[in-house]
Structures are given as structure tokens and as C-alpha cells.
Design a protein around this nucleic acid. Structure first.
Length: 427
DNA sequence: AGTCCACAGGAAGGGCAGGCGA
DNA sequence: TCGCCTGCCCTTCCTGTGGACT
């Protein structure tokens, strides 16, 4: 869109088939009378809410991280030995979602990289990213790739991948800091053997040194680790507390100065975004999302200032987008299970596994879908719970057995949206 | 106190697809 | 082409659970 040079006049030129900017995007068919022309013109003529939209993004790393000075310093001190060629301790960072763990780890290692020059290499992997580093093989393949060795995404024996990673790491004398984000996902799927090997790799390396920063939001995760892995991985431990509403306000103000001016929000908007995010365990990510989406909604309405009503609409939109995205992304079997739960919960607020299996089997028969076993359905129900689409709890009904009580975790409007979406899939 | 129910959930393994090297 | 390796999805088998019932 940048190629349009922010000038509505360009649209006229494009519409007439003349491209005033070499290599500019051609708005084919968007002639002055088309509705699309009006949309584009309004967009280009409107004063934007965010002049630097990137600064509102979650992946943006600012130069200043409010209310995390202590953590930045602490991590800096732990990693500083790298500057004298020593191996820093492995660090384990806990904290709920949106408490700045990843941001601080990236910021500190980034600054360290600048000072250390070529002597330090920082590698970041996120184990929650599907098909990236969520299994032992994929983590190793990802590491090999980071060090310039391309390995196939499947097919090789694990020991061969280990050898490839090992050789790649030790090919040049260097200190390596490996940031393993959402490390609990990796361990859940692959076991802790991979961590055991990585934490002991230094014994075999001749020229390089590897330190690990493990990040998780699962506070009980470390207790489930093999004691050998636990002791070597958590040589240093850091806990990131949730932000409170006032701290979230500071974060939003800081980002707003980078992304736009203070005049782009009306009174109470920052406070509202912060308060809503504080309700969700002090999640700065949520606060930024709310502010960013509010700004986008304001821009779309042709307004240059975010108002409180935009925040309300943004909250609704974020929830709706999440539900739609999750519902669409599910495999057909999970969609059938979710549809069964929705149908049942229209009659009863809470339903049981047995009821769901019954409706699900009927749905499968109607649509020529091969029904899964109850065991598998039980796993898929647990997955839907994990996605936040439903809430479940296991109860005992005494003589009448044990079961899982399932409740939809969606508002009426969202349930209707999901129901309509799934209806289109099955009918 | 023992039995029973209706599951939950762990473990093991089958089948399939993708990819490699010989 | 074949044997081997991987991840992934799934089934089968099994044990565990906890409160009502006898």
C-alpha cells in the first residue's frame, strides 16, 4: 500500500491505467465510481491513528521496557560472562502470558550481541510454533538451519541430526545463547531427553559454548522435569510477575508515543485498555492488541482518534476473530465434536462426554464421516478445552461413574457465530 | 466394606506419508 | 526400488478414580 504514496490523486492515475510511480501497485478496476475507489480514497485521505503501526505490534522490541528494569539487569548480569569469553549459566524464566519474558530475553541478548560483536550468536526458537520446533527432531533441524546446515524436515535418523547440529555449532569458535520459548510444549511432546542432551553438549564441544534460556508460562513445569535436567537447566531462575493496571497504562503510554501521539486517544482509552488486560492476569500482549485493534477500527471509521466505543468493539472483535480462527483451523473430526457440543449446550448448559459421543456419532453417520473411538474423542475434547472454546472438569457421579462436565466458554453471540460456521461445514 | 459404573488418561503399537541413502 | 527413519493420527488395552449403591 506504501506504493500508493499516500495520495488519493494516485488513484485517479491508476484508474485511468497510468502508473505515476514506477513499479507502483495497479488498482485495476478501482475507477472513481466503484465502491472500492471510495474505500481506498477514504483510507488515503484519512489522518492515520498510528503513524508507526509496528510499534503497537507484539513482536516489536522497544529500547525501553517499562517496569522490567530489575529483570533486564538481572538477566544482563547472568549473561555478562559471555563478554569475557566465559559460558553464562543456563537461565529459566517463568511468568504468565504477556509479562515480558520473551521481550526481556530478546532485548538483553540483542544488546549483548551488539557489545560482544561476532563472538556471540543468539538463536531463538519458539516450541509452540507448529511444525517449527515442537518436536525433538524439528528443534534440532531448526538449530541446524540456524547454523547454515539445511536438513530435511523429516526422514533422517535422530543421531544424524544431532551430529549435524553438533558439527555446525562447533564449526566456529563462539558463544551461543539458545532461547527456547514455550519450552513446556517441547517437553510435553518430546520428553526431556532433548534438553538433557543440550544441557550437556558443552562437555563434547571443543570450540564453542552453548547456554540455554528456557521460557515458559507453565509455573509447575520445572517440577515435572527429570531432576538431572532440572538442576542443569535452572542454574538461574527468574520469575516475571504479572503487570498491574497502572503498569499496563505506562506500557501503553510508552508505545503510544512511538506509534502515534497522545492526541490520538481520547480520555479514558488507555485506562480502559489497561484495566481490561489487567483482568486477564496482567497481560501486556492483550493490552497492546486492544489498543492496536481499537486504532484500526477508528481508522476504518474514518476517525483519527480512538474513543472508548472503539475499545469495546475491539474487545468483541478480538474474541470473535479468535473463535472463528480456531473453529476454522480444526480438523473435521474436532469440528464435528464442537458442533455436537454446541447443539447439546443449546438445550443444556453443561453436557457430559457420553452425550457428546452420542451426538457426534450420529453426525458422523449423517455425513459419511468415520467416527473416532471414545478415547480419541476424549482427547479432542481436551484439546478444545486447551483452545479455550470449552471449559471442562472431571466429576464423579458415584454409582453412575466418572465423566467430564463440558461447558461452552463462548458468549451467546460467539456461540451463534461458531454454530453458523460449522453448519456451513456440515450442511 | 465391597461393588459398580462410566469414564479419564497412560502406554504401546499400527498405519500412513514424507524423506534419505544405498 | 527398497529399507530405514521420522512425525502424526489413531486404536486397543489397560489401570485408576471416586462417590452412590448394596
Amino acid at each position: 500500500m506504501a506504493e500508493l504514496k499516500g495520495n488519493a490523486n494516485n488513484l485517479n492515475a491508476h484508474a485511468s491505467g497510468i502508473s505515476p510511480v514506477p513499479g507502483a501497485m495497479t488498482v485495476m478496476g478501482a475507477g472513481p465510481k466503484t465502491p472500492l475507489y471510495k474505500v481506498f480514497s477514504q483510507f488515503l485521505e484519512a489522518k492515520p491513528v498510528f503513524t508507526n503501526r509496528d510499534a503497537m505490534s507484539i513482536s516489536f522490541t522497544p529500547n525501553n521496557i517499562p517496569h522490567r528494569d530489575r529483570q533486564v539487569e538481572e538477566l544482563g548480569r547472568v549473561l555478562a560472562p559471555v563478554l569475557k569469553g566465559g559460558k553464562p549459566s543456563n537461565v529459566f524464566i517463568y511468568g504468565k502470558t504477556g509479562t515480558g519474558k520473551t521481550l526481556v530475553a530478546k532485548y538483553v541478548t540483542g544488546e549483548l550481541e551488539k557489545v560482544a560483536g561476532g563472538k556471540l550468536k543468539v538463536v531463538y526458537v519458539n516450541c509452540k510454533m507448529k511444525h517449527t520446533a515442537d518436536t525433538e527432531y524439528r528443534l534440532l533441524a531448526q538449530l541446524a538451519k540456524e547454523f547454515g546446515k539445511n536438513v530435511p524436515f523429516t526422514g533422517l535418523p535422530t543421531d544424524m541430526i544431532y551430529r549435524a547440529v553438533f558439527e555446525a555449532i562447533d564449526s566456529v569458535p563462539q558463544n551461543i545463547i539458545l532461547i527456547v520459548d514455550e519450552i513446556d510444549s517441547l517437553i510435553q511432546k518430546a520428553g526431556d531427553e532433548v534438553l538433557y542432551t543440550l544441557t550437556r553438549i558443552n562437555g563434547d564441544l571443543k570450540r564453542s559454548r552453548l547456554s540455554i534460556i528456557g521460557i515458559t508460562n507453565d509455573l509447575g513445569f520445572i517440577d515435572r522435569l527429570d531432576p538431572r535436567v532440572r538442576s542443569s537447566l535452572s542454574e538461574e531462575e527468574m520469575v516475571f510477575p504479572p503487570y498491574n493496571a497502572v503498569q499496563l497504562q505506562d506500557i501503553l503510554k510508552e508505545r503510544l508515543t512511538l506509534a502515534a501521539g497522545k492526541e490520538s486517544v481520547s480520555e479514558g482509552v488507555i485506562e480502559k485498555c489497561a484495566a481490561l488486560a489487567a483482568q486477564e492476569h496482567g497481560d501486556a500482549r492483550r493490552a497492546l492488541d486492544l489498543m492496536r485493534v481499537s486504532g484500526e477500527l477508528a481508522e476504518r471509521a474514518g476517525e483519527s482518534q480512538i474513543a472508548l466505543r472503539h475499545v469495546d468493539a475491539a474487545q468483541e472483535k478480538i474474541d470473535q476473530d479468535r473463535v472463528i480462527e480456531i473453529t476454522k483451523a480444526q480438523p473435521k473430526q474436532s469440528q464435528a465434536i464442537l458442533y455436537s457440543i454446541i447443539q447439546l449446550s443449546e438445550k443444556d448448559k453443561s453436557v457430559e462426554t457420553g452425550d457428546v459421543v452420542g451426538v457426534y456419532n450420529r453426525l458422523c453417520n449423517e455425513h459419511g464421516l468415520k467416527p473416532l473411538t471414545q478415547r480419541r474423542v476424549s482427547d479432542l475434547i481436551a484439546e478444545l478445552d486447551m483452545f479455550g472454546m470449552i471449559q471442562t472438569r472431571v466429576i464423579s457421579k458415584g454409582r453412575y461413574g466418572r465423566t467430564r462436565i463440558i461447558e461452552l466458554a463462548l458468549s451467546d453471540a460467539l456461540r451463534e457465530k461458531a454454530r453458523q460456521l460449522l453448519k456451513d461445514v456440515f450442511y
